[in-house]
């Protein structure tokens, strides 16, 4: 054997994560709190980055780390039930050990391009997951950012993820405006009713803001068009792309679009950067 050979660290081998809290957010979204078996945060990350969670024997899947990096105790994941891994995660109980590896991908430029800016966050449904990390990061370093507007919509009130935190923390903060909307009229809901793209246009934001958009592809498409109508340039708007992923480190080829790998060069892109990609995302 080669005496000088040293086995490198392997990114694909995960560590153990223990689920210490499960919160039911909506009929199909739960938020899981994850730490290592000795009660620590598994690794550091920046807002927008993701992690691979897995249930051995069931599979591995990529999720945005929805907690803010400023939370030094644990990580949180808001997960929508939609297949093998996510079904399994939804039926497990507190104390369950799963695997975790990461962090993967780039992050929102919170300390560079976003610094000193007025921020406009726009999310639809589970799209709040990656944004929650940025929002809470901005709230933590409040003096580094200008005014903050949050537009968040979902099908119904029951489908708003993390409604409690929105009501009791975001809405009570100074300098933060939260605009909630649901798709259809509902008894007991006196807030706005209508789709996110239309609501954004109605609200008519001033164009000196930096906007971040996350949600279903169709919502992103129409909201971006709406923002452009309001006079926003694509260079001011950020979003995340979601493609099938396996390795998370730019090697398995699955998330390749043009010369970019979304797992490594993304998931965060500025909308003008997305225009440069071949139309295949």
């Amino acid at each position: 054997m080669l005496s000088e050979f040293k086995m490198p660290k392997e990114a694909l081998i995960p560590v153990i994560g223990e689920v210490t809290d499960i919160r039911i957010d909506t009929p199909d979204v739960k938020t899981f709190r994850v730490v290592t078996p000795d009660g620590k945060k598994a690794f550091d990350h920046m807002p927008g980055q993701c992690a691979m969670l897995s249930v051995p024997g069931v599979g591995e899947a990529m999720f945005s780390i929805t907690s803010s990096p400023t939370n030094t105790e644990y990580m949180e994941f808001s997960i929508k039930k939609c297949g093998c891994v996510t079904d399994w995660l939804h039926q497990m109980e507190v104390g369950q050990q799963i695997t975790i590896r990461g962090p993967y991908g780039n992050a929102f430029p919170v300390d560079t391009a976003f610094a000193g800016k007025d921020m406009l966050f726009i999310a639809g449904g589970i799209g709040l997951a990656p944004l929650r990390s940025v929002i809470n990061y901005c709230r933590h370093y409040r003096d580094r950012y200008g005014k903050i507007d949050i537009v968040y919509g979902s099908r119904s009130r029951a489908d708003l993820v993390d409604y409690n935190e929105i009501l009791t923390e975001w809405m009570t903060d100074d300098g933060i405006n939260v605009h909630l909307t649901i798709d259809r009229e509902e008894e007991g809901w006196d807030g706005h009713v209508g789709f996110v793209p239309n609501y954004v246009k109605e609200l008519g934001f001033s164009t000196d803001k930096t906007a971040i958009l996350c949600g279903p592809p169709i919502m992103i498409k129409f909201t971006l068009a709406g923002l452009q109508e309001l006079g926003f340039a694509k260079e001011q708007v950020y979003t995340t792309l979601e493609l099938r992923m396996k390795c998370g480190i730019g090697k398995c080829g699955r998330c390749n679009v043009g010369s970019k790998y979304v797992c490594k060069d993304g998931p965060v892109f500025r909308c003008d950067e997305i225009d440069e990609l071949p139309d295949e995302y």
Partner: peptide, 29 residues
């Protein structure tokens, strides 16, 4: 060089393995 990562449950343990995959396959993405 595209590959897939899969788990196989032998009953006693779970083996995580990788295998070649192809971007030509319809379920790849």
């Amino acid at each position: 060089q595209c590959y897939d990562i899969k788990d196989f449950n032998t009953g006693r343990e779970v083996i995580r393995f990788r295998c070649w995959d192809s971007c030509m396959y319809s379920d790849f993405t």
